[in-house]
Design a protein around this nucleic acid. Sequence first.
DNA 1: ATTCGTTATATTTTTAAAAATATAATGATA
DNA 2: TATCATTATATTTTTAAAAATATAACGAAT
Lengths: 114, 114
Amino acid sequence: MMESTFTINGRIWIEINGEKVLGHGRIELLERINTSGSIRQAAIQMKMSYKQAWDLIKHMNTHFKSPVVISHRGGKGGGNAIVTENGLILIQEFHQLHNKLKEFLKAYKLEMPS
Amino acid sequence: MMESTFTINGRIWIEINGEKVLGHGRIELLERINTSGSIRQAAIQMKMSYKQAWDLIKHMNTHFKSPVVISHRGGKGGGNAIVTENGLILIQEFHQLHNKLKEFLKAYKLEMPS
DNA sequence: ATTCGTTATATTTTTAAAAATATAATGATA
DNA sequence: TATCATTATATTTTTAAAAATATAACGAAT
C-alpha cells in the first residue's frame, strides 16, 4: 500500500492597513532592480511588462513612508533606478521572515489519510 | 513621528507532487457541503458558481486516494452530497495546521523601517 | 542640437478567467 | 408516470486581467 506524499507549502506577506504591500514577487523585483539598476531590465528578467513592474514600485513607494526605489530618467544609459537603504532593509527582513516560515513548515509533520 | 503598522499575514496549503490540492477555499467548501449536504448550496453560500465548486470537488476526489465528497443525484431533494470520513479528517488536520501558522505569525515581531 | 535607452504614462488589443446559460441524467416521492 | 431539486456536463457570453503598443519626457554624452 503506497502512501501519497503530502507537502505543506506556505507563503507570508506584509500588509499595511489590510492591504498587501510586500510579498515574494515584489521582493524579487527589488532585488533585480538592485543588481541591474534598471526597472526595465528587472521586468524583462521576471518576464513581466515594464508597466506591471512600474505599478508595483509605485504602489510600494506610495505605501511605505519613505520610498523603496528612486528612479531617474534621461542621461547616461537613458535613466536608472536604485533601491533605497530602506528598500534593502525590507529585503533582508523579508528573507529572515521567510526562512522562519520554512523552518516552521519543515518542523510540522502532517498526519493525513490517503 | 508615527509608525506605520505592518501586519504579517500568511497562508498554508497542501500539495501532492507539487500541485495544490487543499487550501482555505476548498476547506471552507468541504465544511459547507458537510453542513448543507449540497454542493449547490455550498456554492451559493460561497458566492461561487456550481461549476466552480464541482470542479474543485472533482479535483480533490481524483487527487486523494479516497474521495472527500460523495454525491448522489436524483431522489429526495433532487440529490445530495456528503463529506466522507476522509474529508472530515482533512478538515481537522488543516485547521490544526492553520492554527499553528497563526501562532507562528503572532510570535514573530517584525522590525521594519517606515 | 541630435542621439540614446530609459522612465513614465495612456491607450488599445489580446487573452484568460469567470460567469452565465442550457441541458441531460437521476431517483425518491406523490 | 409526472414532478422536483439536484448532480453533472457542455457551451456560450461576459468580464477582468494581462499584454502589447504608442508616445512624451528626460538629461548625459557626443
